[in-house]
Design a protein around this nucleic acid. Structure first.
Lengths: 189, 189
DNA sequence: CCTACCGATCGGTAGG
DNA sequence: CCTACCGATCGGTAGG
């Protein structure tokens, strides 16, 4: 056991916030997770709310990085949509705590920070809307696709992944991405 | 102002649990919502956890009623899927507090109750799996549809509705149901 | 449904 | 990072 870093504290906060919720986690719980007292955390961070802000910002950052990379992908709109789906699944599975906290605990943020999360989500969603609009225009997708609502449907599927998917189940990560993409592209008919 | 009924207390608890979360709501908050003191609530209910159980059970009940009715629908598997989607959207929009609490606050339930919620969710999901299997067998849907995973995708879209949909927006309730059904049936290609 | 209260726990601080 | 603590708030109870 070496000494606890600030990063360790934020990571542990992410885990507990994801599991028990922000209000369900006390600073003493968090201290225990790290093998120290609740009061000792204040030499690493200013307070509990700051920890939530930091975890949520990490979550938002992972998603935005993924979207930026996906939009830079060469190829058709369909290829870029695949990259968005693949990237989103990767973020969810590689950063579960931060993602869960980002998706479910943002309501515990103070007003200013919550507003910036809403803005970040909209910016991320915009990547999906853009790809859908491009694909509807160039014939990759049906011309009557409604980008805003379709983006919401796709993101609903993607954001729910962390609620049910287990890496050791019957479908691996690539199959999951394929299944989501195929469902989105072709539906069940 | 007439006197407060037990139902009023459960309904108010649903609203606050949905908005602020179980751990973010105190009995004093709940009393204030009803115009009385926190301690006065104990003449109506045994405790805070019991209130959560009751709200969650109401949410579960609405969904199961809807599924039972949808499965009894005459017609094709496709008609029954429509009925499931339509019923789910109705439950979400008519009982937002209970639904939000059911979907997002079940983790705050004590073990035994949380287990029964998981069982209720599985039972409800089974209705979707059944319809998908029937439809894949009789040609209503593609024969290679994977019922368990497809049920999850459809429910992911349905459960997210309460996170973004506003009844006074550009699409009304029937259009929402159509959009979800069409996306599920045909995708975007 | 209120008054008056209980022990426990909360986020956080001073000082080392 | 701990000791020792602060005032505030928590879920809940006794008695009316």
């Amino acid at each position: 056991m070496t000494r606890t870093s600030r990063d360790d504290v934020v990571a542990a906060a992410g885990r507990l916030f994801a599991e028990r919720g922000y209000h369900g986690t006390s600073m003493r719980d968090l201290g225990k997770e790290l093998g120290l007292l609740g009061s000792s955390l204040y030499s690493h961070v200013d307070g509990k709310q700051q920890l939530l802000v930091e975890v949520v910002n990490r979550g938002a950052g992972f998603f935005q990085q993924s979207a930026d990379a996906a939009l830079a992908t060469q190829g058709s709109a369909s290829d870029r949509l695949w990259a968005l789906v693949d990237g989103h699944v990767g973020v969810v599975l590689d950063h579960r705590s931060e993602v869960r906290t980002y998706l479910n605990q943002a309501e515990a943020l103070h007003d200013e920070f919550r507003a910036s999360v809403i803005a970040a989500r909209d910016r991320y969603e915009e990547a999906f809307r853009t790809v859908l609009k491009d694909g509807a225009a160039d014939g990759s997708f049906r011309s009557d696709v409604d980008p805003p609502i379709t983006a919401i449907f796709i993101l609903s599927i993607l954001n729910a992944v962390d609620r049910w998917y287990h890496e050791d189940g019957r479908i691996d990560r690539d199959a999951l991405v394929s299944d989501i993409f195929d469902f989105t592209a072709d539906g069940i008919s």
